[in-house]
């Protein structure tokens, strides 16, 4: 097994213990469900499993899995962000992350959800990432229908393995992409920075994470080498500033095709 494969596997398996609570509509009794949620996945991927469990205890009308949403305290959770990013930005350090699942009053502040939307959302994010890398979305558009579907299943099924995903995703990555699709989450900011960044310097050297942060956020990262008060985390792991962005991307790319970097004030 290569180092890249090992990191990909570790990244894939990295999980967060989550306690999901629900309140019975009439009795106000609390029910909870514990799960290990993969960092590299979206919360709605777990919804069918969670709802199936609660249905054993609660009279939940309508069997539809649509319109369920999650909150951390009173804050609705933006499901389009990977589980790990949500945890690192909202609950870093908590041994078990307590969240709530709800079925009424879907908030306007988060993207609408349905099973179709999850498919659409994932596919379009993956296409956007592909477009950023290559300047077109041909690599994903030219994928055979069955392979394309298998990639979606591997990306969104909690029980899929990293091999299922990378067997199809790896050949889509060119050795020298034009740009790396990046999302950066700053502390206390609601919206992430969505940027694309060339992975090579003008002299052909691999561009480092520090150089990328210095270019995108010069106030927070005044130089490519010096540490600021913020630690860049990828899948919850602090990353050295000298790490080449291209290697970081190819090993820790999220299932949506983006490299998600959380800037943390905590030192791990």
């Amino acid at each position: 097994m290569t180092t890249q494969d090992r990191v990909r596997e570790e990244t894939w398996r990295s999980s967060i213990p989550i306690q999901v609570s629900i309140r019975a509509p009439e009795t106000y009794d609390e029910y909870t469900y514990l799960l290990m949620a993969r960092r590299n996945l979206f919360l709605p991927c777990y919804t069918p499993k969670i709802v199936a469990y609660f249905k054993r205890y609660l009279a939940i009308e309508d069997a539809s899995d649509d319109e369920w949403w999650y909150s951390h305290g009173d804050m609705p959770l933006q499901w389009s962000r990977p589980v790990g990013v949500l945890y690192d930005t909202l609950a870093a350090g908590e041994p078990v992350w307590n969240i709530r699942i709800r079925h009424s009053g879907y908030p306007e502040t988060i993207l609408p959800i349905s099973n179709d939307i999850l498919t659409d959302f994932w596919r379009n994010q993956f296409k956007e990432a592909c477009y950023t890398r290559d300047g077109n979305a041909n690599a994903i558009m030219n994928l055979a229908r069955d392979k394309s579907h298998a990639l979606f299943v591997a990306a969104t099924d909690p029980s899929a393995s990293h091999r299922d995903f990378w067997a199809i995703a790896d050949p889509l990555l060119r050795p020298q992409p034009l740009n790396i699709p990046i999302r950066i989450y700053e502390p206390l900011k609601m919206a992430p920075l969505r940027k694309s960044m060339r992975p090579f310097e003008s002299d052909g050297e691999e561009r480092s994470l520090g150089a990328v942060l210095n270019l995108l956020l010069p106030e927070l990262f005044p130089s490519a080498r010096s540490c600021s008060e913020l630690v860049p985390l990828v899948h919850g792991v602090p990353i050295d500033l000298w790490a080449p962005i291209i290697e970081l991307y190819k090993t820790t790319m999220c299932v949506d095709g983006f490299l998600h970097i959380t800037l943390s004030t905590h030192t791990a």
Binding site: Q78, Q125, E128, Y131, N136, A137, A191, R194
Partner: peptide, 12 residues
Amino acid sequence: INASFSPALDAR
């Protein structure tokens, strides 16, 4: 966008 993909609705 560019006849290729739909970005997330909350993309700036």
